[in-house]
């Protein structure tokens, strides 16, 4: 039980850390830690349910979110050259942290009825998952670098996965496999896109792309 709450705490903390730090390499490392925390969360649930399938999912999550995805991100970063910092986010760091606090409150307020449906140790942690989703969305909206936006997208996905596991204790191996493949493909495509953008424009600041409209 304590381990579950610890994993959830790590999930939340890493999400906030992504907002706080500007070094892109640090952000990727934090993201890897979050992937590990998610794997731990699933593993704890697997131990509770005593199901082999969940254990397999936990291993899969660990490999994908703490291993493959950070590796892909780091490789994209390595090609980036000097632009290794999120220099000018649209909302500065201290305001971002305050916003994260507000989003956490909102997530707690909103997920109360979900928790009340079936109060248990796992469902008590639902607000954490929702918070991670919202913070991921916030990162997506406020960060300029394509890579940090990618991380924002992956944070959202981590949050959604966490909520899924916490509410249903396992959505089935096939579903999880499908979602993971989806995420992997999305990251690969976005990585290619990022590389192309850098080759074409010499920069990955998405705000420079204002001509793409009718």
């Amino acid at each position: 039980m304590q381990l579950l709450y610890l994993a959830c705490g790590a999930l939340l903390l890493t999400a906030v850390l992504v907002l706080w730090r500007r070094e892109l390499s640090v952000i990727i490392r934090v993201f890897a830690v979050q992937g590990a925390a998610l794997a731990v969360l699933v593993a704890v649930l697997a131990a509770q349910e005593n199901s082999v399938e969940l254990w397999a999912v936990a291993v899969g999550v660990l490999v994908l979110r703490a291993g493959v995805l950070p590796y892909l991100l780091r490789r994209a970063l390595a090609g980036a050259g000097e632009s290794r910092r999120e220099t000018r986010p649209l909302v500065n760091v201290s305001a971002s942290l305050l916003a994260a606090a507000a989003l956490t409150l909102l997530a707690y307020a909103v997920s109360q009825p979900l928790v009340a449906l079936a109060p248990s140790a796992a469902t008590q942690a639902i607000p954490v998952g929702v918070t991670v989703v919202l913070i991921g969305f916030f990162v997506l909206v406020t960060r300029r670098r394509a890579l940090s936006q990618l991380v924002g997208f992956l944070l959202m996905d981590n949050g959604i996965t966490a909520v899924g596991f916490l509410t249903t204790t396992g959505v089935g191996l096939v579903v999880e496999l499908g979602v993971s493949l989806d995420v992997l493909l999305a990251v690969l495509v976005l990585q290619v896109l990022t590389t192309r953008m850098r080759e074409t424009f010499g920069d990955t600041d998405l705000d420079e792309l204002r001509e793409l409209r009718d």
């Binding site: 916030f138 997506l140 909206v141 406020t142 300029r144 793409l212 409209r213």
Partner: peptide
């Protein structure tokens, strides 16, 4: 629709919130 990707994402974020 000004063309800014962040603005489009922002619309989604604000509506969700």
């Amino acid at each position: 629709a000004s063309g800014s990707v962040h603005r489009y994402l922002g619309y989604g974020f604000y509506v969700v919130c």
